[in-house]
Design a protein around this nucleic acid. Structure first.
Length: 738
RNA sequence: GCUAGCGUAGCUCAAUGGUAGAGCUCCGGUUUUGUAAACCGGGGGUUGUGGGUUCAAGUCCCUCCGCUAGCUCCA
């Protein structure tokens, strides 16, 4: 006999073999009918799973009112969708079908591709399944037998998954629903009839096991709810959110544009967007000066050698605009040098190199088809010989070299003489050279160098997205050079700095991510001890600030761990904004020093930080955050003067002039339109204040104030309105106060 | 980069394989107006690019470019 404690504190006893459903029945018939699943000792289980035979347990019946039940419903819906797809598409291979934030998906490999026009068919088939309300039945098989069952069902991906990851389990569970059997951990709803509403949303590609070297499957996204009303309101919410899209508002409100001619991912800030950005930049600059930062300016390009030293060029070669060399041949030889220097590489790196060569339009087919690494390197070598001859480059050291590494070295030596330049992908190497420009004493530290630094990265075409993912952007960047004792206070100050900005702008919906090193990956530089030190102090600081955060291995920068502030856009995608990064590695690479109190040289530690991240991305998120309706202190146009008829133009101009003299961003609409039309236009342009002037106002020297959010605010003397709006701006108020 | 979808006037969208059209914007005029759209007229297009099929292509097929969603990547 086991005892189960319910949420209300009451206790139920159940004999061995009893199920959650049976307990629900003892509580009430209606509850049993409404039950979706049960939660036993914190774990969600099927209603008809056998409960523990003895001991004391916590127990809860989940109904459609529990958010966790919705997750169970959606998981079951994924099975229903897969079942429908299998009926409609022959020889379908199933991969994974988990739930996600607002629904679920199933990864599918089908010889005939699924397309959007197939959705109605799939939904109709799903409806048939839901209407039949067949139960989900769980059964277990020893792992070897389970593998056999998957093989019998011709589910190759499931077999592969068992072989790769599930082998160590003694047995595996399946769920059967009618003719459909799926390897699955569960839990599930009792029967398909519980699915009240569903909709297939989109189809997209997704790599098997999220690995770009594996085959690409089709990911079918859908959502499901307990009742149709919830689905409807979910779809409405999506529609509403889309209206906040910064790409739509940016166009409507003339904040920014992107021209194909200028280039993809390159933002053209229009006057209104530039005004908002300028205000934000001034705001940051003022705050930085208060906090002991020194402004610097550095150029947009730098010598390639600089980025070879920092590691940025070799690490992110394929994500950069191609290097600039005076000699066209140098670019080609650079690629060959890169390959020779890598030597024999694994399949994954080879694939990356091939991708990069494709990008450079320099890929001989025989290189791709060649399987031997040694022969590939020989081919590159032959190609170099050809180039050197054709281009009349005299390189005796290359010819004397006896192996590919020596050849790579000889080429590199030549390349370094060629004075290649790179559009800067990062500001840090430049700032480092300002630090290095003079001897530093421990008394000078921290040195805090700040710059709105514009950087360029060649992002993959599929990644480009409005202002949030671009190829040229300006970071509100700064680099701090500090002693080990200063790590904690400086890091803490920076996190507080980011929080201050977010608070000022009313950004409260963010999460903090601690990006740590993935010990299994080779992409990181520096020794493990430095990393451990850095990661431990970082986590301790974040913890002491009382911030909630998640530690994510593999999310670190290649030179150090970081704390990122992550926000969501209007369609739920996450973007990294502010970031604070701890770096023990670049100071080593650049041999940075300061003279300590002991009169001996010491190595400083660096902090990279950008509270906004990039002006472009931040602006994009801010547009969505405010729905394009900026608070008065940020609004590109704060006030519009509207004349009731153009008889009052003279007075309107006087009001406009008085406001402009006080630094208020104001325009006048003196056209011969009706006042209603002018108001409508100003409302649509999301201007915080409209001042209506006509007969009465002209006579009394007043303005009739209309706030965008509040409507008519009554008549005020001009001077009083100026005082009010002035205060609102100085206080950086997020709401209208006039 | 990959998978799927989409590219028609400055913007939002129409147009069975058969003469490219509407609303807004813009320009000219009339109107002189009191808190979310006054009226009349006009301009505007090699239907993203290049090729193909056809008596005939915005529409069907191929190429490239761009955009959208997702995946991979993200210093």
């Amino acid at each position: 006999m086991a005892t189960f404690r319910l949420p209300d504190g009451s206790v139920k006893e159940a004999p061995a073999g009893a199920t959650s459903y049976q307990i629900a029945e003892t509580i009430g018939k209606r509850l049993a009918q409404a039950a979706i699943a049960a939660k036993v000792d914190g774990e969600i289980v099927d209603l008809n799973r056998e409960l523990p035979a003895d001991g004391e347990h916590t127990f809860q019946i989940l109904t459609d009112r529990d958010p966790e039940a919705l997750d169970v419903l959606r998981h079951s819906s994924a099975h229903v969708m897969a079942r429908a797809v299998m009926r409609l598409f022959p020889d379908v291979q199933l991969a994974f079908g988990p739930t996600v934030e607002n629904g679920f998906y199933y990864d599918i490999d089908s010889p005939t591709p699924i397309r959007e026009e197939d959705f109605p068919k799939i939904e109709a088939e799903m409806k048939k399944i839901v209407d039949k309300a067949e139960p989900f039945e769980r059964f277990e098989r020893p792992t070897a037998e389970a593998r056999g069952l998957c093989a019998d069902l011709k589910q190759k991906l499931k077999v592969e998954h068992i072989d790769e990851e599930l082998k160590q389990h003694p047995s595996l569970s399946f769920y059967r629903q009618g003719e459909f059997i799926d390897l699955c951990r569960g839990p599930h709803i009792p029967h398909a009839g519980k699915i009240g509403a569903f909709k297939v949303m989109t189809i997209a590609g997704a790599y098997w096991k999220n690995d770009s070297t594996r085959p690409q499957l089709q990911r079918l996204y859908a959502t499901a709810f307990f009742n149709p009303k919830d689905l409807e309101s979910h779809l409405n919410r999506i529609e509403e959110a889309k209206k906040r899209d910064h790409r739509v508002l940016g166009k409507q409100l003339k904040l920014f544009t992107i021209s194909q001619m200028v280039g993809s991912g390159l933002i053209l800030w229009m006057p209104k967007g530039a005004t908002v950005r300028g205000i934000l930049e001034t705001f940051i600059k003022d705050e930085l000066l208060k906090r002991g930062y020194s402004p610097v300016y550095t150029p947009h390009i730098g010598r390639l050698e600089l980025y070879r030293t920092s590691g940025h060029f070799p690490y992110y070669r394929d994500a950069q605009f191609p290097p600039m060399y005076h000699r066209p041949a140098a670019g080609t030889l650079d690629l060959c040098q890169y390959r020779l220097a890598m030597g024999e590489i694994d399949e994954k790196r080879e694939r990356e190199y091939i991708e990069y060569m494709k990008q450079a339009h320099m890929l001989p087919p025989e290189y791709v088809s060649e399987t031997s690494q040694a022969k590939k390197l020989d081919m590159v070598h032959e190609f170099v010989l050809l180039l050197l001859k054709d281009l009349r480059v005299n390189l005796p050291e290359y010819h004397r070299a006896t192996n590919h590494q020596e050849r790579a070295d000889a080429l590199l030596k030549w390349l370094l003489d060629q004075e290649g330049f790179l559009l800067k992908p990062m500001n840090c190497p430049h700032h480092i050279h300002i630090y290095k420009a003079e001897p530093r004493s421990y008394r000078d530290l921290p040195v805090r160098l700040a710059e709105f630094g514009t950087v360029y990265r060649y992002e993959q075409t599929g990644e480009l997205n409005g202002m949030t993912r671009v190829r040229g952007f300006t970071q509100d960047d700064a680099h701090l050079f500090i002693t080990p004792e200063q790590v904690e206070s400086e890091f803490r100050a920076n996190l507080e700095f980011v929080l201050f900005f977010f608070r000022t702008l009313g950004l409260s919906d963010y999460r903090v991510r601690l990006g740590f090193r993935d010990p299994a990956s080779t992409k990181y530089v520096g020794d493990a001890a430095d990393w451990d030190t850095a990661q431990k102090s970082l986590e301790a600081i974040v913890k002491s600030l009382g911030m909630s955060y998640s530690v994510e291995p593999g999310e670190a920068a290649f030179y150090g761990p970081k704390a990122d502030f992550v926000v969501k856009d209007c369609i739920g995608r996450e973007w990294q904004l502010g970031t604070v990064q701890l770096d023990y590695n670049l100071p080593k690479r650049f041999e940075l020093e300061y003279i300590g109190a002991d009169n001996k040289p010491h190595r400083p530690i660096m902090i990279h930080r950008a509270p906004f991240g990039s002006m472009e991305r931040f602006m994009g998120i801010l547009i969505e955050h405010f729905g394009g309706a900026f608070p008065t202190w940020l609004a590109p146009e704060q006030v519009r003067v509207l004349t009731v008829s153009d008889k009052f133009r003279g007075y309107g101009e006087k009001v406009e002039r008085q406001l402009r003299e006080k630094g208020i961003r104001v325009t006048g609409d003196f056209r011969s339109d009706k006042i209603g039309a002018k108001i409508r236009e100003a409302q649509l342009e999301k201007i915080p204040y409209m001042l209506v002037v006509g007969d009465k106002e002209q006579a009394a020297g007043t303005v009739a104030v209309r706030a965008r959010t509040e409507g008519d605010r009554g008549v005020k003397p001009i001077a009083e309105f100026i005082d009010c709006i002035d205060r609102e701006v100085r206080e950086r108020s997020l709401v209208a106060t006039v």
